[in-house]
Write a protein that binds this DNA or RNA. Structure first.
Lengths: 230, 230
DNA sequence: AGGGCTTAGTGCATTAATTCACAAAGTTCA
DNA sequence: TGAACTTTGTGAATTAATGCACTAAGCCCT
């Protein structure tokens, strides 16, 4: 609770804070000054008690009878999530997806500038994509050091993903966002998050089939995306 | 348990089945015939009891003292997930990401052919990307009918995402994969899964910051990706 | 044939997450 | 000032998910 003994925010709550943040940024953009847990709950599509409990992990920043202040809460969530600074990203794998992500402004705009992209294919090395030149995966260590990279994004083919991960870890990276549909083997000191688009579709397929079989009176999928393992 | 009163597989288990499937496909490709819950657990990075429990929701398809048969289990998982057939996909939003996804063979190879891509920008309509011509979002209803589309993928900008969702729902789509960083408002009969890349990075950022503050003795992120709300 | 070994299946305890429901604290207005 | 109203913050109950540990089955070898 107090600043001193930080942490013990449940993982489930941590995963929701970015959603709240996104909504609050929208509110701030439309000059909304305050919000209640009910309002945020409606916008986020969750239960109001959950919103209050989640926000209470940050501290006691609301005012009873009034609500929460938008800008203040934005500040607190950003502080908690470590978003008071930028985190540099390197993309490994300069295929369609890798290049699309390197260009993607959603990364930069949220404080995650892509400072490098590498590949192991000589035909791709040297190409330029949106102000970045594709580097050699062998130079990863130098790139990570020189560009102060914090997070690695893997967009290689499945067979290459593990060695991409190994290279990132060898270069000192401890946070990985993996788009390859494989379970990476990494030391427990490294955080990995998997985004497997095929998995997402397969989960949708399950609930879609359920609707068809049960005459559409089946419940729908939980809005929580979850992939990966461990 | 029995075929009759289908369902009551926990959502958490459903989200893991695609991972198991992916691993089993790899095993099959290397001519492995059988596996034990221990082996699959190691490959998936989960607990063996969890594997057994998850698989038991499908039915009692293992042999004690022996294990499970790879191809048979693949079949059962595919049946359960609704993967005995193809599900057609339409992409709404022909930007970088949308086009990359339309080309992405991970969709087709897993039984989700992209049969159409649309946009609302006249400058993009008519362009061709990997054998698909960008259509007008206004024609969505016809496309969904003619191409028998089952799943809509939203890769528009945030402001356009809700109207894209409305158009998909209006066209009769009940499963949506949303890449725009907004919480879509949809009837509960529609399944939505959100993939918000910014959110994933922000979650990584939290655990990364934790490691920095706590001198790297902090635990790392859960491998479960979770985004979205509701 | 039978003992030892392996591994699935599962009841049960534990832990995590969610939701309820209410007291505490503040606002507003007469 | 104080009564009515609003909304937070949080114990406690509930529900969901996890993981242990044991039983039931089948294989293999002598």
């Amino acid at each position: 609770m107090t600043q001193l003994q930080r942490r013990k925010i449940p993982d489930a709550a941590i995963a929701r804070l970015p959603i709240y943040l996104q909504i609050l940024n929208n509110l701030a953009a439309t000059n909304v000054l305050r919000f209640s847990s009910d309002e945020l709950a409606a916008l986020a599509g969750v239960n109001a008690a959950k919103v209050r409990k989640d926000l209470s992990y940050l501290g006691s920043y609301g005012t009873r009878g009034v609500g929460y202040e938008v800008t203040y809460l934005i500040h607190q969530i950003k502080r908690e999530l470590g978003l008071m600074r930028e985190w540099n990203v390197v993309v490994v794998g300069a295929g369609n997806l890798g290049c699309a992500l390197a260009k993607f402004d959603g990364f930069l705009s949220r404080g995650f500038p892509v400072v490098g992209i590498v590949d192991n294919d000589p035909k791709k090395i040297g190409r330029t994509t949106s102000s970045l030149t594709v580097g050699d995966v062998g130079d990863l260590k130098n790139i990570v050091r020189d560009e102060k990279v914090n997070i690695g994004v893997i967009t290689t083919s499945s067979p290459a993903a593990q060695s991409a991960a190994d290279a990132l870890i060898e270069a000192g990276i401890t946070s990985i966002l993996n788009f390859a549909p494989v379970v990476l083997s990494t030391p427990s000191s490294v955080s990995v998050r998997n985004v497997d688009l095929g998995v997402e579709l397969q989960i949708l397929s399950y609930y879609e089939q359920m609707r068809i079989e049960n005459g559409s009176k089946a419940q729908s999928a939980p809005q929580l995306n979850s992939v990966g393992a461990r």
